[in-house]
Design a protein around this nucleic acid. Structure first.
Lengths: 140, 140
DNA sequence: ATATAAATAGAAATCAGTTCTATTTATAAG
DNA sequence: CTTATAAATAGAACTGATTTCTATTTATAT
């Protein structure tokens, strides 16, 4: 997805296209990795001397609600986000543990595990979260 | 796994079998669901008038290091743990979103997604985290 | 029974994240 | 191009889950 497509989605959802929202999107598109709000603020500091942490937290949360960003789960209590480049598909993400790069994995075999759970546990599956980690092609 | 097997593992790893560690294990085995440290403390209060929150946090973390407990990931910043009843196998967990029950899912098709990632992204996969949610047989 | 290192209680501190209020700004309408 | 409007923001203050610290207690090997 291009930056324009993301901005269009923001407008569609009646949010304003502010310089800071746009800069944050550009940052994610350029870095190709997951970021915490404080990290993102540090990286945007050169362009915006005055950029409050609450603003970064809020923008990331809003963009997550729109499906533009997704949360990355870590063991620490910190929040991490990354941009989702294929928001329409059923897919997952691969994370490089060394450089923090996030890549789309356009593959999902949830059906098999859902069937297993429904047969064995007699339960109804509703959602699943999959995160694969390792070393990307550059770091391995 | 029986309570004795867990206690044996604790001894093996040179930790002491204290009344509070034992009571926490019994609680997880009985409740069959995930718990936060503050919740667990509340449930153990009748038996232990003096039970500090830091103690509960520390015990849960230690037992996680031993592979006896696992962390459950939620969107909130709170920590949740549950007991792992099949620590030796490659498996996952199913969580009931209504009653918080956790059930073992002795099924793993990680190989397929790992192959996809290694072929397409030329990356090396090292670990994966899968959490399936829905309604258990009682709640659905 | 005793010695020892490990475990614990409770107070205090930490720190990521959130709330609040006054001010600024994107945008739709004239 | 103005103006009106609601939305967005900065920065200070706050919150609350988790962690640290220290003195005391306890499990366990001898």
């Amino acid at each position: 997805m291009t930056i324009e497509a993301y901005l269009h989605k923001i407008k569609q959802c009646r949010l304003k296209v502010t310089p800071k929202r746009k800069a944050l999107l550009e940052l994610f598109l350029k870095k190709e990795r997951y970021l915490s709000p404080p990290e993102a603020r540090t990286l945007l500091r050169p362009r915006f001397k005055q950029l409050g942490l609450p603003t970064v937290y809020r923008i990331m949360e809003e963009l997550t609600d729109l499906g533009i960003l997704i949360r990355i789960k870590r063991d620490s209590r910190r929040l991490y986000y990354t941009i989702c480049r294929a928001p329409q598909h059923d897919h997952h993400h691969f994370i490089c543990r060394k450089c923090k790069r996030v890549e789309e994995v356009e593959f999902c075999n949830f059906g098999d595990i859902a069937k297993f759970i429904e047969d064995r546990l007699q339960a109804k599956t509703e959602s699943h979260f999959v995160q694969v980690e390792g070393l990307c092609c550059r770091c391995k």
